[in-house]
Design a protein around this nucleic acid. Sequence first.
DNA 1: CATGATGCCTGACTTTAGTCAGGTAAAATT
DNA 2: AATTTTACCTGACTAAAGTCAGGCATCATG
Lengths: 291, 291
Amino acid sequence: MLDPPARIRRFNRAVTQEIGALDTSFLGRGRPLGAARLLCTIGPDGADVSALRDALGLDSGLLSRLLRGLEDEGLVVTEPDKTDRRRRIACPTTRGKREIAAYDRLSDARADALLARQSRGADALLAAMDLVATALSRHRITVERTDPETPEARHCLDAYYAELARRFEAGFDVSTSLDPEAESLRPPLGSFLVALSDGLPLGCVALKGNGSDTGEIKRLWIAPAARGLGLARRLMDEAETEARMLGHKSLRLDTNRALTEAIALYRHLGWREIPAFNAEPYAHHWFDKQL
Amino acid sequence: MLDPPARIRRFNRAVTQEIGALDTSFLGRGRPLGAARLLCTIGPDGADVSALRDALGLDSGLLSRLLRGLEDEGLVVTEPDKTDRRRRIACPTTRGKREIAAYDRLSDARADALLARQSRGADALLAAMDLVATALSRHRITVERTDPETPEARHCLDAYYAELARRFEAGFDVSTSLDPEAESLRPPLGSFLVALSDGLPLGCVALKGNGSDTGEIKRLWIAPAARGLGLARRLMDEAETEARMLGHKSLRLDTNRALTEAIALYRHLGWREIPAFNAEPYAHHWFDKQL
DNA sequence: CATGATGCCTGACTTTAGTCAGGTAAAATT
DNA sequence: AATTTTACCTGACTAAAGTCAGGCATCATG
């Protein structure tokens, strides 16, 4: 019916109106939009001026003036960076932090109102918003080494187990599977990587080590909102790099036949199917790769 | 991990950056944003000034000035309305139409670039954008009487058949079903309603008549992007109103047991299950309702 | 240590957006 | 026919955003 560009235009119209309404929430605290955005971008932890400049895309002069305005209001203080005293850091004062918190509450209230209006579709709406946001800011997805017991890692693993339970014909229960000790997923034995976009975990992969020169890939998962972006490949690449840094000479992994996209990816990335090397009850295929 | 308000904030950030980039595409033709938006809102067919005013939410003075600017550029002409000569209509000149087309091409090119970047996820992204746009502008969904053979109606019916084929355990093939003649879905016998949001068809319902005082509800369908908004109920309500206007005293319908939400809706709206009144091979339940 | 680059600031300026108080012609109402 | 209302316009204004040319410390480099 509508062609794709028209659908995107429709999306833009709908969103600019809602976002416009969201922007005006910045008003109502007696401050022009620019100053309010600057204050919120500075955030409770402060930020250096050059970071602010390219986060907001503002001219150096304009930013400087806005900053002076916030200083005059007693909301921020700026001080030179210790290591390079040309650079300056803007930090909110106590009053500034209160003001930021007030803006946050305002924006939360708007978000809640938006969700409350969605009778039963709130989850679907949030999922769609995640997908759109992820697609639009894919270039800002970062992959970070993290501890396998951080909240971000747990979030990924829980989502991963839930998905396996849905997709395996026999269901999935971690306790009946070969679950690696957290120790084997931490340096110096192994590693755990998560992909993050603006704080939202979008995927993970674990590299399990036992001190030998052979590592094992586990727990490769990509959030539904991030599929089709090539993120799985990126995580596998970074896991290989980690493995090399930990001194591994080869990698292996096991997988279930229901995970067809993963199997296709392993083959595509140069993995070779080998006989079973473990007794994982949920596994149907085993692969290895020389580094 | 992230709570819903934080996810919405993330969405806003991602979108304002992309939309911001889209907005600046209005520039690059030597015209400020306001004037460009006005010209595009006028559109190739022209529009009257009061409609422009509340479409753009502009002050009467400001709009007037922008309009003079476009006139000075030779892009639009304004002339009094024939029936009420206080009102004025703004119409693009030939040059104005060319300029509007140029803006459209610019925005199409951006949309294409955005989609091209999405390796394989373009369909998923568009679907998510539809869902978000629909949820945000649900208050602007209109229900309109239309001919059952317009492109909008065909789009809905095709999507409806495709969905039945997926959901019925035995599949679905229209040609083996009781397919009503288009004539029975047009006034004066019956009626066909579509729900539209900004040109995108989001749902439909057909009222079939045969000249008697009993009508029949057929083809109730809601686009995936519009589920959970109460649109089915609204379509059913409007179909009942149509039926009353056509002089029907009662309505009936048949349905398949796989369509559980529809069955629940019919019950909720006061329909009563009755014995089979036709030989529809795909039907398991039959309902009627007195008007 | 001179030179140039960098990071931020200031002052003077323009553009864009938006507000508000009339004003005029046409239509609707009394 | 007098009035009120409606729809749009004009002029005078303000606020906010953005631009640009210098200026001044500070750092990096030959």
